[in-house]
Design a protein around this nucleic acid. Structure first.
Lengths: 356, 356
DNA sequence: CTGAAAGCGCTTACAG
DNA sequence: CTGAAAGCGCTTACAG
């Protein structure tokens, strides 16, 4: 591969001049610039980003450590992060922690060794010494979705409390009283917050959330299945299961089907996180939707601000309720009233918002 | 951040010795090793991978350029690629081409500039000059899933022909005669191959695939929707729509629902690529499943072999048919015969394989 | 406007 | 077993 030296030789100038041309430095004569550009072209020269990074101490690379790529929520988050990063001139290296703290540490270590300019993390746990050290050492860092209390790092997240309150109002309005939740790991903020939001909303109706109605999940499908089976084995099973993420909702659906039961006739189901497939499950699933793309973009903007020496604020964006058919909502089809409307437009639009 | 110099100073040795300890070079005295390790520990030293890469001309990084991360098939592929790469001591930088050739080129350029050791590509198109040049220039490279004819690069892919033949046999057995396909872009191998496999299988039954029954899609949901609408507008619409990937199947479902029609009563639907959600759509979708994880792992192994100077062979793994309920398959529930079996176990198992 | 030179943080023959 | 030194491919004051 041609190096800057080859270009300099071919253009008859010094490597310094070549470098200036490459970096759009103003003090280069038009003649020199032309010759350098011609040489670059002939040689098919491409600047070595590794050498440049070593010299400038900047890699123009962001690290993103997420908990589980296979979770469509995180896939979409990763996608928007990459898009915004690209728009700002950064590449991103992903690390998939697979909800395993050791793997998360592996990726953080790897990313740090590669001297990424900044780190975006959705922590799998309460924070390893490694991550805490990195934050303290001043590595530009931003938390997305999940965060670690007591660490001075900006957080970009969705606030699901209003939407969860909307959901509970919706469920209560449909006549449901026995509400259960499949929670995420207590070591994560989202694991705790969603349960608390649910409990608080339920309390507003004078209801309680008994311990039996709190299933302990880990944000993966299998744990949703197990928690649901336990609910169904209860002497008095819940009327509604609220899964704290989309994968656990998938597991819950599996478990319910495996018993030969039906949603929502035998038991209702709602989920935190909305994904395109929820429109097409049987039945379509009522869910709390996060502004995922906007979260990813805001996180990148905050991180780049930190890298550039500014001190970005945390960002909190509201989630919203999307009502579909999994909680016993009245079927829109046989309804004779709104005859002008195409049959499926109302119930499956992701833009729909409940107003309790 | 502490550098190797700091470690050397603290340990009272030369940087050469520190480097040897770090690289497990045999000729280091136990005493020196101990002092170096202690210094590393005290300083919290971490080797600068950028500097190391510049010196050794190896980044231990693989580039993976895929067509669309949001497609669950590619998400899973990416995940298995990262896992196998990690097992072999490599990191991977992802580039999402979003089915756009210019974006694909952007990523390839970026990856090449970063001096990745090897490139894994699932080409979005017939191959840009950039990609062709890279292949010719000897960049270690492997194609996964999609490939480019006439380029001397190993290919790791699934062969769907047998499974598509199984599918057509299945459809024919259910009484369907008017079969349509939503194809992927003709610029991709998978876009062409799946149509050809379908056409060939249909021919075995003395049937044909009229042009009207070939919808032109781009592997994205929206194109599946449009193609399906066109099918439904035909004077004689097809009895079955076979979508050449899972996202177009999603779009097809949307379009069918939007007309107030039902699957499979009004029209049957099958898809290439199987994903966990297909078990829970309404109805569960009959699909051709690729051995996705194994493809990703095999691709990484082939690429690393190439990087290490060996000359790996192409790998082709068989896909298989997974029968569910979207093609008018008889419902298993009311069947009195297999009373011993739990109600949903049979029809939704991803391991199930049709034997026509 | 231009070039010689130092230096980023490593690794690795070479000599001892 | 160990260290001095060269060099990977760049960038950037510094001097002219």
């Amino acid at each position: 591969m041609a190096s800057i030296k080859d270009v300099a030789a071919k253009a008859g100038v010094s490597v310094a001049t070549v470098s200036r041309v490459l970096n759009d430095h103003p003090s280069v004569s038009p003649a020199a610039r032309t010759r350098v550009l011609a040489a670059v072209d002939v040689l098919g020269y491409r600047r070595n980003a590794v050498a440049r990074s070593l010299r400038t101490d900047q890699t123009h690379t962001l690290g993103l450590v997420i908990s589980d790529v296979l979770n469509p929520y995180f896939t979409e988050l990763a996608r928007s992060v990459e898009e915004e990063a690209r728009a700002l001139g950064y590449s991103v290296i992903f690390g998939n922690a697979d909800e395993r703290p050791e793997l998360q540490d592996h990726h953080i270590r790897n990313l740090l060794d590669r001297r990424i300019d900044g780190l975006l993390v959705s922590p799998t746990d309460g924070g390893s010494p490694l991550m805490l050290d990195a934050a303290r050492a001043g590595t530009p860092m931003v938390f997305v979705d999940r965060w670690i209390p007591g660490v001075d790092v900006p957080v970009v997240q969705a606030d699901g409390r209003a939407a969860v309150r909307d959901l509970v109002a919706h469920l209560h309005g449909l006549g449901h009283r026995r509400l259960a939740i499949i929670a995420g790991p207590a070591a994560t903020t989202t694991g705790r917050e969603r349960v608390e939001a649910f409990r608080a909303a339920i309390a507003e109706y004078g209801l309680t959330l008994p311990d039996d109605y709190i299933g302990q999940g880990d944000f993966q499908a299998e744990s949703g299945r197990r928690a649901t089976e336990r609910f169904l084995d209860l002497p008095e099973p819940p009327e509604v299961v609220f899964a704290a993420d989309n994968l656990m909702a998938l597991g819950a659906l599996d478990a319910i089907r495996a018993r030969g039961m039906r949603v929502p006739e035998d038991i209702a189901l709602a989920a935190f996180d909305d994904i395109p497939w929820f429109v097409h499950t049987d039945p379509p699933i009522t869910a709390v939707a996060q502004p995922t793309g906007e979260l990813g973009r805001a996180a990148v903007r905050a991180l780049v601000a930190r890298i550039e020496g500014r001190t970005p604020k945390s960002v909190t964006l509201p989630a919203r309720l999307v009502v579909r058919r999994s909680c016993g909502e009245p079927s829109p089809e046989p309804s004779p009233a709104p005859a002008t409307e195409p049959s499926s437009a109302r119930r499956s639009s992701p833009a729909q918002r409940s107003k309790p």
